[in-house]
C-alpha cells in the first residue's frame, strides 16, 4: 500500500465512524427522552416501553455499526491496497 492510500484510508476510517455516530446519537437521545417521559407519565407501562426502546435503540445503533464496518474494511481489507 503506498503512503497516500494508507493515509487516506485511515482518515476515511475515522470519518466513517465519527460521522456515522452523529445521527444515531441524536436519534437515541430523543428516543430515550420519549421513553423516560412515557415512563414518568405512566409508570405501569415501564416493561413494554423498555422492550420497545431497547429494540429501537439497537436499530439506531446498527447505523453506526455500518460506518464501523466501512472503517474496518478500509483498515483491514482495503480493496485499493
Amino acid at each position: 500500500m503506498d503512503s497516500i492510500t494508507s493515509a487516506a484510508s485511515v482518515v476515511a476510517a475515522g470519518l466513517a465512524v465519527g460521522l456515522a455516530a452523529i445521527g444515531p446519537g441524536i436519534g437515541q437521545g430523543s428516543a430515550s427522552q420519549g421513553a423516560v417521559e412515557g415512563i414518568a407519565r405512566q409508570p405501569e407501562a415501564e416493561g413494554k416501553i423498555r422492550g420497545t426502546l431497547l429494540l429501537s435503540l439497537a436499530f439506531m445503533e446498527s447505523l453506526t455499526i455500518y460506518g464501523l464496518v466501512v472503517a474496518l474494511v478500509l483498515l483491514f481489507a482495503n480493496p485499493f491496497a
Partner: peptide, 16 residues
Amino acid sequence: LSLSFRLFGNILADEL
C-alpha cells in the same frame, strides 16, 4: 444487506 451487516458488525465490534 442490513440484516447481515447489523449482526456481523455488532459482534465483530464487540470482539474488537
